[in-house]
């Protein structure tokens, strides 16, 4: 039986009167690709924030590989092997794509040279180049990040998150800001690269077609609660999900 990688028990989080998470129980098995859906403000990002230690939940527990990581810092969660990308890419805007990756590879634990040694060394350079190729952003290697188009930024953000070869990666809206036409390309790229590194993936996505295509399992959030959790076929057809998340009335065909 495959290992349960991530498990949350009764997570709760409030911002003043806003309920961003309530009684969230989720468990993710190693190797799964989980899609997370939900309207804006449903608590998807808050979930990612809590799991990666950016926010501490008010209630509940987070277990990673059976170990309680509730209340740990971002650094500790990263160390444990949970990394993430962001809705708005978090990059080093004044540096080029290549320099971003050099920095990421060079400061990240297992590749880090001793602190008195120059960071730029052949193995670091090779790794950075390999990552650029894996995510097909090598053409932009020498472009400063603040001059990149959104699509490349999104890819680089994910590539940066994958530098540490995490056991689990959370992608917060990897295709937002990308045209519908390119969405599948980007997502295909990403999923390919992630499959190769055998990471377990949880991705937040608004496009139901993308979710249907790539997710093994779908979790729907509404007002901080898990509304539905199961295979795409079941969840995406669930009337409550259709009403509150997908945004069309139950019983009608998607394009009608």
């Amino acid at each position: 039986m495959p290992e349960v990688l991530l498990e949350t028990r009764g997570l709760g989080k409030r911002f003043g009167a806003v309920v961003a998470a309530e009684d969230v129980n989720v468990s993710v098995t190693a190797g799964e690709i989980v899609g997370v859906i939900g309207a804006n403000g449903a608590g998807k990002t808050t979930f990612c924030n809590m799991v990666t230690g950016y926010l501490t939940p008010d209630l509940g527990q987070i277990l990673f590989r059976g170990k309680d990581i509730t209340g740990c810092t971002v650094g500790q969660a990263t160390e444990a092997g949970i990394h993430r990308s962001f809705q708005i890419p978090q990059l080093f805007p004044g540096l080029t794509v290549y320099e971003n990756l050099l920095l990421a590879v060079g400061v990240f634990g297992h590749r880090r040279p001793p602190w008195w040694q120059p960071l730029v060394r052949p193995e670091v350079e090779n790794e950075a180049t390999a990552i650029m190729e894996r995510y097909r952003i090598a053409e932009s290697a020498t472009t400063r990040v603040d001059r990149l188009p959104q699509g490349v930024r999104k890819l680089l953000d994910i590539a940066m998150a994958m530098v540490g070869q995490p056991a689990m990666i959370l992608l917060d809206e990897p295709t937002s800001g990308i045209s519908t036409k390119e969405k599948f390309d980007v997502m295909g790229n990403v999923i390919d690269a992630l499959r190769k590194s055998a990471a377990t993936v949880l991705f937040v996505e608004h496009d139901m077609e993308v979710v249907g295509r790539y997710a093994d399992r779908v979790i729907a959030f509404r007002e901080g609660r898990v509304l539905a959790d199961g295979t795409p076929g079941v969840v995406l057809e669930d009337p409550a999900v259709i009403e509150h998340v997908v945004g069309r009335r139950p019983g009608r065909a998607p394009d009608a």
Binding site: T52, T73, V74, G75, T78, E79, H83, R84, Q90, L91, F92, P93, G94, L95, L102, L103, A104, G106, V107, F108, G109, R112, P113, P114, W115, W116, Q117, P118, L119, V120, M160, A161, V163, G164
Partner: peptide
Amino acid sequence: ASPIGYAGQGVRENELRLRYLGVS
């Protein structure tokens, strides 16, 4: 030019990303 120097650039450019790279 060492990792700690580069970490400095990370602090300057985007601390959040640096933290998510496991650096304090």
